[in-house]
Design a protein around this nucleic acid. Sequence first.
DNA 1: TCTGTATATAAATGGCTATCGATCTGCAGC
DNA 2: GCTGCAGATCGATAGCCATTTATATACAGA
Lengths: 117, 117
Amino acid sequence: MAIDLQLAPKTKRPAGERCCEPVVYPDVEAEQAKRVARVAKALGDPVRLQLVDVLRRHAGKVCVCELVPLFNLSQPTVSHHLKVLREAGIVGSERVGLWAYYFVIPDALKELSAWLS
Amino acid sequence: MAIDLQLAPKTKRPAGERCCEPVVYPDVEAEQAKRVARVAKALGDPVRLQLVDVLRRHAGKVCVCELVPLFNLSQPTVSHHLKVLREAGIVGSERVGLWAYYFVIPDALKELSAWLS
DNA sequence: TCTGTATATAAATGGCTATCGATCTGCAGC
DNA sequence: GCTGCAGATCGATAGCCATTTATATACAGA
């Protein structure tokens, strides 16, 4: 996935070109698109989507040991998905003794939600 | 990406287990999670997000020849991204003579948007 | 201090994906 | 027919990703 410099400069195409005339530019700027896409990408996996769903529905923090048995996946795999969500800024974690509790970061999904509306 | 049978059966863990007691189940079922995640995944790329943004903002249909010069990407790459969006059910296309016009399918983003709210 | 338990990390692997150049298809004009 | 253009598809490649097993870390209890 190329990350930067994908947007061409906002100049009209040279006059020699044929094809259609008007050029439409995106209103979402490249930086914002990168941020929103990052969140969407993290949600683009059924397991992660359900993880977020569980965390969101559960007001407080949820222990990893509760999350793992919800899926037919190994514990490291669930841990991996939680890490992806954490790195996307969607969830946070807190360790208490042996247990780790995860929670949805408030407003983490706000920008994506706003863009969709 | 494993697609099915990721959710474990909704039975309590055997009594022998230690750890936390209550088990929280996702409200979003596996099938719905798959559908929503499919859309989110398609939007999980900055280029595709901006493509959808342009199409959404432009009420009618937008010619591919307008979309390609917006990005510093080759024409086949843009075509590829449009195909991904089409296969995710987000956009549709219509060919008129030499040109192909793309448009956002109404309500394609509705389920994701609803889940986020 | 030893043992077990809860998570995280490491290493490996098979599959997917973003990108490009080259090529193919289909249409419009001459 | 031929020529040129718009767009899609193909083939290749390099990087990323989801998963697993094995191992490490870190804490709790005896």
